[in-house]
Design a protein around this nucleic acid. Structure first.
Length: 977
RNA sequence: GCGCGUGUAGCUCAGUUGGUUAGAGCGCGUCCCUGAUAAGGACGAGGUCCGUGGUUCGAAUCCACGCACGCGCACCA
């Protein structure tokens, strides 16, 4: 029965063993294994709040170099969702890390408060009385609604652990912010970049107002569509160009579902690469050449069957061959042109698109390219004005449809008409169909050259660059993107550039109630008063009482003491009703927040904007434009973008999916730290898969890290970190310090590169491999069995203490709660940090000192370890050797390495948890190990369970090895004394 | 449709300037320990590197064409 451990032999031995157990230094710590984050996190938050953590941190870094991450404002509507958690967590990780790296990192969170979704919510609440409710009342309710969500979201963000100046966030609806938005507007006006022009918008005839897409609902209706032949205007030139030698009229065949827009027809659009047929048609004595897309010839002719018709394809041309050809309008004395447009398709119609720049967005864009008028003969109440023929003037567009069709028939322009079912936008409120109608809108030109630093105002930062030369916003933006801005990841550059290259002028004005009113007045004859001085006068009122002043004050009050430009009479001025595009408000936060709080935040450009990839077209771009217009430089030095949360299968989530992650619900279920760690573990450059299941499963990873820290803490419970300990090399301790040094280097490198998922992976693997599997396991014997103060044990504690401290600090930006909890349980703080009550006030760990001369020895040792473990596994299967402590490892080494290995002492057995080791000279130059079962021939120490030849060498303790006998004697003497 | 991305084990990720048999951790399976214990350890099985074609002595890596997915192309934010 010699295989059995002595503890099992008889009851007396068992008691003795229990006594020995009392002499061991077993792990001890108050740091709980079970996190219970849901309970502990709110308590910790309260503690941070009570101790003014944010303020203390700012104070501690008062003289440090600043690192400014300027917060992009979420919309103050609804509870935060997982996307918010991703964004704010990434920001918080950056700032906490930079702060630990020694920077001063003030963080002013903010909210975008104006906008349609809130207006809609209030509209719903008010119901049908909406139209009779004064704008001021609506705005008041919108304000309260937005404010309530600012407060709600602020609580939720803080619950997730985001540290910042929550007592003083920014809100785009705050008076001071509104005033600053107007100031930026004034400066852009001064640069001559703001102009007014007609642009088609969705229009409700019923309510006589512009509508946003969200105000629309699409319904299936059946309309009359018409195929109309437009006769070529200059047949001689046309035939010459297309090489037609027939005596026949040439006609362009177009198709439209809105005949009422034909009076505004100014052009026909052709696809540049579409094939067009020149089709000779003889029918009832008429000879014409019809032009339409080749692919659609059969389909279109079939719509008007005719027995007498003969057709002959003369030739086929590309759309681009038609560009510039002219035609006569069928019932208005006007010549139109053929233009080219990429959006022309051959799925419907004729491949030639009726183009009315006043009645469609694509038509408008095309019209601008070709310099066409934005002609819109339809008035606000939906009736034709007097610029159209008499027989149309005064008709509303719906009445006009049949009249126009009759007219087309009369002038032989109608090829055919047919009923056409399609989906058409309706005003969601009145349920009546809407129209596209051109209205006056305000624009910021992106192509007009200007001087960015003229005399009107002083540049913000000294040493302005070449930006005071003439250049357009677009030109400046492209240059800034290429030369001034760092993108994380780098492809953000291409994405922003693509958008800026093609973007049209910025439409600044909106016809909305819940927005910042545009400070523009109009004369009795509708001339706009756009003047920087006037804008600043209004701005002063807004700064005082907010933008409600626009509604509550009279023109006289608003303009009190302001000198008006010539041609404007205060008595007849009226206030405009437009509001700003909300993007103009958030897009000016570099001024409204950064410049306004420059004592805290310094000046633009700030170090970093960090938002989702959708913000390339949103906040990134629309912050860049006004900043360039005013300052001539970008508002940021670097831009970091992240992807979106998707389902585990990579497709997009919606609220009804079972994979939908409800942010605060997950926080309440698992705690914020788990969610934060989960976010950190994903590569945010792409899509980020998530589901409640994935997050739950991720708890394993959190627990592994937590438990590793707990193990370290429990083994250094009696350790005083004050004096440094010299670590001999080679040794496992020295190896561990080398691994830790690499970890510190690699993790900080990953943080610096904003690759948090790499930092997470490094930390997690380090816990699993270096600490749990290798070092922590190997140190058990000496930690538990050596006398508490033995050098071997203290050395291990010294190393473990450094590991624990480094892990806590490196983990702190991600797991803000857990790291601080662990820090609290660290009894002996590192030298110089004894007074730090919170890990977030600490600085990053320094890479520990270690010998770098033994890498080859360690690599060899680890290889031999693997080999020994395999042999142990084989012995387990072959002879039932279940405990490595029952085995002996024999190292067969070449003579050159024998001394080096011998100096590592018990490391050589502890590294595989064996009971004993020996070194033998190898016959050749190779190193290898053999493992032997020592149960048959070597007694096990009753205390350490190691099989050692020296068991019984101390007569007082016949069942102990000499090391354990000494330790017990020491412990009992100490106990006796 | 257009622009910008992404696609490597069940999961999350590494894979330098093309170069042995494509790696890690987790998870999973089997076993062990019971002095980290609602812990810990060992071993093991898992991959058409999205597809097709090309360049090359050699491709996860370079090129072309596809496919799938995401973001953007709006008076949504």
């Amino acid at each position: 029965m010699s295989q059995d451990s002595p503890t099992a032999k008889d009851p007396a031995a068992k008691d003795e063993a229990a006594n020995y157990k009392a002499t061991l230094n077993l792990p001890a710590t108050d740091f709980p294994m079970k996190a219970d984050l849901v309970k502990s996190e709110p308590a910790r938050l309260a503690k941070w709040k009570a101790s003014n953590l944010y303020t203390r941190l700012m104070d501690k870094r008062r003289d440090a170099k600043p690192f400014i991450l300027h917060d992009g404002p979420p919309f103050a509507n609804g509870d935060i969702h997982i996307g918010h958690v991703v964004n704010k967590t990434l920001k918080d990780i950056v700032l906490r890390y930079k702060s630990m790296a020694g920077f001063k990192c003030p963080y002013v969170p903010g909210w975008d408060c104006h906008g349609l979704p809130i207006e809609h919510r209030i509209q719903e609440q008010i119901g049908p009385k909406w139209r009779d409710t004064p704008v001021a009342d609506i705005r008041k309710q919108c304000f309260e609604y937005a404010q309530s969500y600012v407060e709600k979201q602020a609580d939720q963000f803080q619950r997730v652990g985001v540290l910042g100046d929550w007592s003083n966030p920014y809100r785009t609806m705050a008076p001071a912010y509104e005033a600053s938005t107007l100031e930026v507007f004034a400066r852009i006006v001064e640069r001559g970049l703001v102009y007014r022009q007609l642009k088609p918008v969705n229009w409700s005839i019923e309510n006589q107002t512009a509508l946003a897409e969200a105000d629309l609902e699409y319904k299936d209706v059946v309309d009359t569509s018409v195929y109309v032949a437009f006769t070529a205007a200059n047949p001689g030139a046309l035939k010459a160009r297309l090489d037609i030698r027939l005596r026949a009229d040439v006609k362009f065949l177009i198709w439209t579902t809105t005949p009422w827009t034909l009076p505004a027809n100014l052009a026909i659009a052709a696809g540049p690469d579409v094939d067009y047929a020149l089709l000779h048609v003889e029918e009832e004595g008429n000879s014409t050449v019809l032009i339409l897309a080749s692919e659609l010839v059969e389909k279109v002719l079939a719509k008007r069957p005719s027995a007498s018709r003969t057709t002959n394809l003369l030739k086929t041309v590309k759309g681009r061959d038609l560009e510039g050809l002219e035609y006569a309008h069928p019932f208005i004395d006007r010549i139109g042109k053929v233009v080219l447009a990429d959006y022309v398709t051959t799925t419907d119609g004729t491949g030639l698109v009726h183009t009315a720049p006043g009645h469609g967005d694509e038509d408008y864009q095309t019209g601008r390219r070709y310099g066409l008028d934005v002609y819109c003969p339809v008035l606000a109440h939906g009736r034709f004005d007097s610029t159209v023929p008499n027989w149309l003037t005064g008709l509303n567009v719906w009445q006009a449809n049949p009249v126009i069709i009759d007219k087309l028939r009369e002038t032989s322009s109608l090829f055919v008409d047919e009923k056409y079912p399609h989906s058409y936008p309706h005003d969601a409120r009145s349920k009546k169909p809407t129209i596209y109608r051109a209205t006056q809108q305000w624009f910021v030109s992106v192509d007009k050259s200007f001087v960015a630093h003229p005399q009107f105002d002083k540049p913000f930062s000294a040493g302005a660059s070449s930006s005071d030369q003439e250049a357009s916003i677009r030109a400046r933006a492209l240059k800034a993107i290429d030369n001034e801005i760092t993108f994380h990841p780098d492809w953000g550059r291409a994405r922003l550039r693509g958008m800026l290259e093609s973007r049209p002028d910025w439409v600044l004005s909106r016809q909305r109630a819940w927005g910042l009113p545009m400070p523009i007045f109009y004369s009795a004859d509708d001339r706009p008063l756009l003047d920087a001085g006037v804008i600043r006068a209004v701005s002063r009122h807004f700064a005082r009482v907010g933008s409600d002043a626009w509604f509550n004050l009279t023109v006289d009050e608003l303009l009190d003491g302001v000198a008006l430009p010539d041609g404007f009479d205060r008595a007849t001025l009226r206030k405009g009703t437009e509001t700003f595009d909300v993007w103009f408000e958030s897009g000016n936060s570099w001024f409204g927040v950064v410049e306004q709080r420059s004592d805290q935040l310094g000046h633009a450009p700030v170090d970093l904007y960090l938002e989702g990839s959708d913000q390339h077209r949103g906040w990134f771009q629309l912050s860049l434009l006004p900043s360039l217009a005013v300052n001539g430089h970008a508002p940021y030095r670097a831009v970091l973008t992240h992807g979106f949360i998707v389902k585990p299968d990579g497709t997009k989530v919606s609220k009804s999916d079972k994979e939908y992650v409800t942010a605060m619900q997950e926080v309440d279920r698992h705690g914020a730290d788990l969610l934060r760690l989960y976010v950190a573990s994903l590569d945010y450059q792409g899509d980020m898969p998530a589901s409640p299941q994935l997050i739950s499963a991720f708890g394993d990873k959190y627990r592994k890290i937590r438990n590793t820290i707990r193990y370290l803490l429990s083994n250094i419970d009696d350790f005083e970190a004050s004096a440094p300990i010299t670590i001999p090399a080679p040794s496992l301790d020295d190896w561990m310090l080398g691994e830790l040094a690499a970890l510190v280097r690699d993790v900080t490198g990953a943080y610096d590169a904003y690759k948090f998922h790499i930092a997470f992976k490094l930390l997690h693997d380090f816990c699993n491999v270096q600490i749990s599997s290798v070092y922590g396991n190997a140190m058990k014997d000496r930690l538990y069995c050596e006398s508490p103060g033995s050098p071997l044990r203290r050395r291990a504690q010294f190393v473990m203490h450094q590991c624990a401290v480094a892990l806590m600090k490196l983990l702190a930006p991600m797991c803000v709660f857990t790291a601080d909890e662990a820090w609290e349980h660290l009894k002996s703080k590192p030298p110089g940090e004894a007074d730090l009550d919170c890990v977030h006030l600490a600085q990053l760990p320094a890479a520990p000192q270690h010998s770098s001369a033994h890498d080859a020895t360690y690599a060899e040792l680890m290889r031999l370890r693997d080999e020994a473990l395999l042999q142990l596994d084989r012995l387990k299967k072959d002879v039932g050797l279940n405990k490595a402590l029952d085995a002996e490892v024999v190292y067969h080494l070449p003579s050159a390495s024998i001394e080096m290995f011998r100096s590592m002492g018990v490391d050589l057995e502890d590294i595989v948890g064996a009971g004993h080791h020996r070194i033998e000279a190898s016959a050749d130059q190779s190193s290898r190990v053999s493992v032997f079962d020592r149960r048959p021939d070597t007694p096990a120490c009753a205390r350490s369970w190691k099989r050692r030849p020296d068991v019984g060498s101390d007569p007082r303790y016949p069942d102990l090895s000499s090391r354990d006998a000494q330790a017990v004697a020491l412990a009992r003497n100490a106990g006796a004394a």
